[in-house]
């Protein structure tokens, strides 16, 4: 279930490799696909989301544009370090509308999720929303 934005649940973007002050990384977790974070050139690009507490995640949905190779890593530490790889995918190119991809994480526990974009379909890529489906308890 996606009820509310990640930011309203206390999540934060703690690292982002690029920043345009008009399109800050907070836009990734505000639950709104019309606001976005954009890279400002070169690959790889990455951002890290920190959850308010350790969270069991069944799937994550990424709304983006021009992202080609996407790697996701996670950890269960209070610090943004020592990540383990979760998945690596090649996303399909879209034109005129956003890419929307749901990636299954099989209920793994995480305090941080790290998204690494290793290549794109253009010089610049954007991420409009990341939302998380929690395991129902």
């Amino acid at each position: 279930m996606i009820d509310s934005s990640l930011s309203s649940l206390g999540a934060k973007v703690v690292v982002a490799a690029s920043s345009d002050e008009n399109h800050p990384p907070e836009n990734i977790i505000d639950g709104n696909t019309s606001t976005f974070w954009t890279s400002t050139g070169m690959f790889p690009q990455e951002f890290i989301i920190r959850f308010a507490e350790s969270t069991q995640i069944s799937a994550v949905t990424v709304d983006s544009y021009n992202v080609k190779q996407l790697k996701i890593e996670k950890n269960t530490s209070p610090n943004a370090s020592q990540f383990e790889s979760v998945t690596e995918q090649e996303l399909k190119r879209t034109e005129g509308h956003l890419q929307s991809n749901t990636i299954l994480l099989n209920g793994s526990n995480a305090t941080h999720l790290r998204f690494i974009i290793t290549s794109g379909y253009d010089h610049f890529v954007s991420v409009h929303r990341v939302s998380v489906q929690n395991v129902q308890t």
């Binding site: 696909t33 005129g96 253009d122 010089h123």
Partner: peptide
């Protein structure tokens, strides 16, 4: 490169949802 970036920003500001 700056012009490319501006084009990119204009494009994504007018995108529909996925």
């Amino acid at each position: 490169f700056h012009a490319l970036y501006q084009d990119h920003r204009d494009t994504i500001q007018n995108l529909g949802p996925g």
